[in-house]
Design a protein around this nucleic acid. Structure first.
Lengths: 254, 254
DNA sequence: AAGTGGTCTAGACCACTAT
DNA sequence: TAGTGGTCTAGACCACTTT
């Protein structure tokens, strides 16, 4: 077993303010986070034990527990049963980025319907949507505009089945935003999302008003209904020079 | 205020197994998740109140609370104070992607050091590292191989300062994996990561053994020490056809 | 006023790790 | 054996929303 440094005695500068609107567990988490930011607690160091924190800050074990869980969830400490809780080293692999960073692009998007036709599924579409080849699907092409600029080119195949009301709703151009933002009454159970970097082809470049070669982000999505049947397969393609994902690892700025 | 459907009475098929190794809060969360998967609870539906769950499953309020917090953290329900807890609709924007998906590429990577020189900072480098223009930096170029294939081309500028021991450690080729995986004794406090889609230039394509034009993922990183001074600025560039980020929204498969 | 979620207490027992 | 984190109880009080 690897050696771990002993825990240090923290300065008792900060304490829990019981009159504050901020919950005690959150205050305690911030106090500990502050200790790390100041370098009092370095990566690999052991935090004070839960019992010590209970005594030092005058809160109950559950409150200490919650504060430590919070920090563990945020990836800044790691708790090891029977050993202690330790400050996690900064690792680039801990980075997580969220699609909601693109919310602004979708919330204010103007949706231009380019095409909506019934087409028979070829082999690829049939396999993705788990339907027989040759079965009818609805093929939709949309262009999403944001502040006068084309932001995304979206293509989608929907299972054509009159008994599934989602088809009707999806044909409305506004349904796209509901899909992204989430809305009450959705008939989707879950979805798989995949992000790739691709080159724009000529048609994509023309619609997005750029010249090839140009890099792009591609967001492929496959949504399922409550019977676990695929209902929607499609891609959003957006110019890479207008899309950016950022995140922070290690100590999160509050 | 928008109308919300009333909560339904759940079948009491499942119950908490006190002899199980699985914690009660986790069991309860899974029971509720199962109800959603079966369609008993649909997006927008209200979950049973905490008091109802306490009575129905014979656990304490804190345990119920924890189960609901777990589901809320996972984004499948939303709790609204004074109103209730509701099943969240599926939203594509809820997708989160984790860089740790690339762990296998870094863990087994063979690092080839292409260059490590002291260079004076130009305007761009100086601005990023917050040092005066013309100050000396260490410029490192590396190629990461995985299973006999070039996986990433990495370039990095390090602040050159003999008083900062990180410089010595970073020059070791193995330090790169530690940066990605995290390791005890790191002197980094936090880092900013940015992901872009780009086109490979000629040099990048040659090293990664592909032909232009080719799309690529670029992971830019900027790491800070405990005095909040930037110490490392660099990019990993990897072939897009070998990199994929996937995730799931809505009901998570367990 | 009644019902909801949000926080918190002051303990308890257990599993695990180190000595 | 002593110390650690992990779970759990059976309540309490509060803020908020709805009726």
């Amino acid at each position: 077993m690897a050696h771990r440094p002993q825990n240090k005695v923290l300065q008792e500068t900060a304490s829990i303010d019981r009159d504050s609107l901020e919950p005690a567990y959150s205050q305690l988490a911030n106090i500990l986070r502050q200790s790390m930011a100041e370098g009092l607690l370095r990566p690999g160091d052991q935090l004070p034990s839960e019992a010590q924190l209970v005594e030092r800050y005058g809160v109950s074990p559950m409150t200490v527990r919650r504060a430590l869980n919070l920090l563990a969830d945020q990836g800044v400490v790691i708790a090891e049963q029977g050993r202690g809780t330790f400050v996690k080293p900064v690792a680039m692999s801990a980075a997580t980025f969220q699609l909601s960073q693109l919310d602004y692009l979708f919330r204010n998007a103007v949706v231009q319907l380019l095409e909506a036709h019934i087409v028979t599924a070829n082999e690829r579409v049939a396999r993705k949507l788990c339907i027989p080849e040759g079965k009818r699907t609805i093929y939709i092409r949309r262009l999403l505009w944001n502040e006068g600029q084309p932001a995304f080119y979206h293509r989608e195949y929907l299972v054509y089945d009159p008994t599934r009301p989602i088809v009707e709703a999806e044909l409305e151009v506004t349904a796209l935003q509901q899909l992204f933002s989430g809305s009450t009454g959705s008939l989707l159970k879950y979805g798989d999302i995949r992000i790739e970097a691709t080159l724009l082809d000529d048609e994509e470049a023309r619609l997005l008003q750029v010249f090839t070669p140009m890099a792009a982000f591609c967001f492929e999505h496959l949504f399922y209904d409550f019977e676990n049947r695929p209902v929607s397969w499609g891609w959003f393609i957006g110019r890479a020079d207008r899309l950016r994902f950022t995140t922070q690892v290690g100590l999160l700025s509050e």
